[in-house]
C-alpha cells in the first residue's frame, strides 16, 4: 500500500476526486436538462449508470496497464498517478450514494409493480454491468 504520510498521494486523490465529481455532475446535468417539451432528455439515473460503468471500465484498464508496467512503479510518480486515477478519479466519477437515491426515486416515481420493476432493472444493470465493464477494461490493455 502507498505511504499514508505522502503529501503527493493526498493531493493526487483530491485532484482526481474533483475531476471525477465534475464529470459526473456534468453527465447528470446533461441528462436532466429539459428538452423543449419540458421532458428530461434521459432519466438522470442513466447518467449515474453511465458514470459508474465508465469508472469501472477505466479502473479495469488502468489496473491492467499498471500490472503491465509492473516494475516501473518503483519511482514515486506512478504511485501518485495511480492514486489520481484509481482512488481519486474513478472513485469519485462513480458513486454509490446517488445510485441508492436513484433506485429509490425510480421505485417511487410510478405505481408499485412498474416502479419496483424499473428500480430492480436499474440495480441489476449495475450488478451485471459493473463487473462486465471492469472485465472489459482489464482485457483492453496490452
Amino acid at each position: 500500500m502507498i505511504g499514508v504520510s505522502d503529501t503527493t498521494h493526498w493531493i493526487s486523490i483530491a485532484a482526481g476526486g474533483a475531476a471525477g465529481a465534475v464529470l459526473r455532475g456534468l453527465l447528470a446535468r446533461a441528462a436532466a436538462s429539459p428538452s423543449p417539451d419540458r421532458m428530461p432528455r434521459f432519466d438522470p439515473a442513466l447518467a449515474t449508470l453511465a458514470a459508474n460503468l465508465g469508472a469501472c471500465a477505466l479502473l479495469g484498464a488502468w489496473t491492467a496497464e499498471a500490472e503491465l508496467a509492473g516494475a516501473a512503479a518503483s519511482s514515486g510518480f506512478p504511485g501518485a498517478l495511480s492514486a489520481f486515477v484509481a482512488i481519486g478519479f474513478c472513485g469519485s466519477l462513480s458513486t454509490f450514494s446517488t445510485l441508492c437515491a436513484d433506485a429509490i426515486r425510480l421505485a417511487r416515481a410510478e405505481p408499485r409493480p412498474r416502479g419496483a420493476g424499473r428500480a430492480f432493472g436499474y440495480l441489476l444493470a449495475h450488478l451485471a454491468g459493473g463487473p462486465l465493464a471492469l472485465a472489459a477494461g482489464l482485457s483492453s490493455a496490452g
Partner: peptide
C-alpha cells in the same frame, strides 16, 4: 445540493472500488 449531494457524498461513496473489491473476492 451540488456541494453536498453531488460533490461530497457522491465522491465519498464509490462504485468502481466496490466492483474491484468484488473482483479480488472472485
Amino acid at each position: 445540493r451540488p456541494f453536498l449531494a453531488v460533490g461530497v457524498l457522491g465522491s465519498f461513496t464509490t462504485f468502481s472500488t466496490l466492483v474491484d473489491d468484488g473482483r479480488l473476492l472472485a
